[in-house]
Amino acid sequence: MIYLYQGVALLEINELKQIVEALLIATPEPLTEARFNTCLGDSNSKIPLQEVIRELASDYEKSGRAFFIKEVAGGYQIVTNAEFESYIKGLFSKSGKLRLSQAALETLAIVSYRQPVTRNDIESIRGVSSDSSLRTLLDRKLLEIRGREDGPGRALLYRTSTEFLQYFGLNSVKDLPRLKEVEDILAEDDGELV
């Protein structure tokens, strides 16, 4: 397959795969279609990144690589296969990734479904002070402050970040199971409420 590029040059699929591979290695954040086209220069003919990714992904799979291309936070990134975790851990001083506490997960769940939210919104749902979980989540960049509320007090508003999507392997917050769905699944398990 041959793609038209900048009206004149012709890019062959193998070349494109190499370009995308290079970009995936160097990208500090998920590589989006828009960013990809920016990298290719001012091109009128948009090259479908998804297609190139698919080709590249199947190459990786066939040749048995230790990594794969993950669709996350609206773009693509290279991640290692799960079976190498025990070796990779040795690269870091702490024993692998730290898990989030129950309190932090609760706070995160509330923010992700209700964003943007204020600390007060979170605390009134949880019924406990959530200062320290918010701090942990901000420090780990899973949450970010996005402006202030209009009302009195102009409280800070919290939102989930790109790192949040990466951490949970989500393409977008829309991919989260709806709260109702969670209830349904649990209701099936229990057969009754509570």
Partner: peptide
């Protein structure tokens, strides 16, 4: 209760994503 139950899903997603490491230049 709704959010607490959702927390279990997050916990599960975390457990699933944990062994994967991003290539970060």
């Amino acid at each position: 209760k709704r959010y607490k139950e959702a927390t279990a899903t997050f916990s599960e997603m975390e457990r699933f994503e944990r062994p994967h490491y991003y290539h970060i230049p």
